[in-house]
């Protein structure tokens, strides 16, 4: 078959047909994958909540709470076991990461201490800042872990800045960002508690 000539009409028609077919195919694939993608996202979020809270059997629908000091609001999930509150999972974020945005799922137990956390998204340097995924959970090294602590009794800043938490070796910026996200979650949690108890009176 001979090559079609590059006349104006031929070019317009060819491009039109190609983009139409491509668009149609993509639309079809999108409808096909829409549900699995949503399910995978929800599953990932649920798994994250499970790792950051004590065992629970009921989870409240997520609700948004305006972050302390402005900025985007945070997602709160309240967990219950036998209708008793066991903790709150908070999806928090910071924009101060070495690679920009970092989102973290944190869990605060009913005593108001951090029970666990899981880094959801980050763009930190692999091998350095990316260690935040496990660094602050290491309860064998009490000075670098945040588990079982809260900002009221422990100063949630890296030791270099006069705080009580050991920063990741060679990743002070990522460590500061991590603590920024954690403190934002905690302060918003506190504020939310206050406003809730205020409402009840």
């Amino acid at each position: 078959m001979a090559q079609r000539e590059s006349t104006f009409l031929n070019m317009v028609v060819t491009l039109l047909v190609i983009t139409l077919i491509a668009g149609g195919t993509l639309g079809y694939v999108y409808t096909l994958t829409e549900a699995p993608i949503a399910a995978a996202k929800e599953k990932a979020q649920k798994e994250a909540i499970k790792t950051v809270l004590p065992e629970f059997d009921k989870l409240s629908a997520p609700f948004k709470v305006l972050a302390e000091k402005g900025g985007d609001s945070l997602d709160f999930f309240v967990a219950y076991k036998n209708n008793e509150l066991v903790g709150t999972a908070i999806k928090t974020y910071t924009k101060k990461g070495f690679g920009g945005l970092v989102t973290i799922m944190t869990g605060i137990d009913k005593e108001g201490n951090f029970y666990g956390y899981q880094v959801l998204e980050h763009a930190e340097t692999p091998g350095l800042g990316s260690k935040m995924a496990t660094w602050f959970k290491n309860t064998e090294k009490p000075k670098q872990s945040i588990i079982g602590k809260n900002p009221k009794t422990t100063k949630f800043e890296v030791t270099k800045d006069g705080g009580d938490i050991d920063a990741i070796t060679a990743s002070t910026i990522s460590s500061r960002a991590f603590l920024d996200a954690i403190v934002r979650a905690y302060n918003t949690y506190e504020k939310n508690l206050e406003s809730n108890s205020g409402n009840k009176k």
């Binding site: 079609r4 590059s6 491509a22 993509l26």
Partner: peptide, 21 residues
């Protein structure tokens, strides 16, 4: 053979982009 020579690059890119998506 359906693609006129002058628009082949945009046509290829659209096809590639569709598969990537």
């Amino acid at each position: 053979s359906f693609i006129p020579e002058k628009v082949r690059i945009p046509s290829f890119i659209v096809i590639i982009a569709a598969f990537v998506t």
